Computed example of a mutant assay.
Amino acid sequence: MFTGIIEDLGIIKKLYAEGENLHITVQTSLTPELKIDQSVAHNGVCLTVVSIGVDNYIVTAIKETLDKTNLGKLKIGDIVNIERAMRLGDRLDGHIVQGHVDQTAECISVIEENGSWVFTFRYDRSYNNITIEKGSITVNGVSLTVVNSKINEFSVAIIPYTYEHTTFKTLNTGDVVNLEFDVIGKYVKRLNDLRS
């Protein structure tokens, strides 16, 4: 489990394809605190640490993960949002995040508004995911509050701290992001669908 509160930015140092798997080498200041078999979220995608070096570590993404997330689009030098799994007993500063991406979305608008930013995203509604006004959403692993919720579109307001300490500072119109919809909302929607 994660909270959507980003701990660090990782730099992609190496990408190595083996069959349909992609081995991703990430450099981050958190490396000395990691251990093999630990779960770490990368742009909101939970991956297992399989190897650790001096200042970097390796995770492996399988084909399904590459098909359903933006990790298959990574290039050497890209930055990713990094979060380690939450510890039992810690404060839950964001919201409950599983690290299981539901789908991707495209950034369709970035507007600067007096020192903050409003990012708008459009997603494929055929997956039957929903947002609600003032509900929670995870974008590239960042826990955020939905504003301007529509059927297949929503916006989020980004404060300067979040902008500077996450990949939002590099996000542009046309970029693809990972979405994890609120887990409680997903269960409620599923129960409602079963009753229909």
Rank of each mutant, 00 (worst) to 15 (best):
K134F: 03
L194V: 09
Y161L: 01
N172W: 03
T173Y: 08
N129F: 15
I111F: 12
M86T: 13
I5P: 07
E180R: 00
V156M: 02
A105E: 02
E33L: 13
K150Q: 14
Y127R: 15
H42P: 01
V176N: 02
G53L: 09
T60E: 08
L22C: 00
T104Q: 09
G72V: 04
L34M: 11
E83G: 04
G185M: 05
A41Q: 08
E133K: 12
T162S: 09
Y123R: 09
I151N: 15
E18K: 08
F181C: 08
G185H: 06
N56S: 15
I184M: 09
T69M: 08
G174M: 11
L171K: 03
L9Q: 05
G19A: 01
S149R: 09
Y187D: 01
N114Q: 12
Y163A: 05
E20F: 09
A41E: 07
D124L: 11
K73L: 13
V97L: 03
I5A: 02
E164Y: 12
I24R: 07
I132Y: 11
E83K: 13
T104H: 10
K150L: 13
I24S: 03
G135Q: 08
F2A: 04
T48G: 06
L22I: 01
V26F: 06
V59M: 12
L66W: 01
F121T: 09
T138A: 15
V80F: 01
Y16F: 14
S51P: 00
R190M: 11
I76C: 04
V142G: 06
V80Y: 00
V59D: 04
D8K: 11
I62G: 01
E164F: 13
C46I: 06
I5C: 02
T167E: 06
T25A: 12
D182M: 10
R91C: 03
G115W: 10
T167R: 05
T104V: 11
F168D: 08
G99K: 01
T173Q: 14
I76Q: 11
V118Q: 14
N128E: 14
E180A: 03
Y123V: 13
H95R: 03
G141K: 05
G72T: 01
F119H: 07
I137N: 00
I6V: 14
I79T: 13
V59H: 11
D93C: 09
G44R: 14
I6K: 12
F121S: 04
T170G: 08
W117G: 00
E106N: 12
M86L: 15
D124S: 14
I58E: 09
N129H: 15
G135W: 09
E64N: 02
N129A: 00
S143F: 03
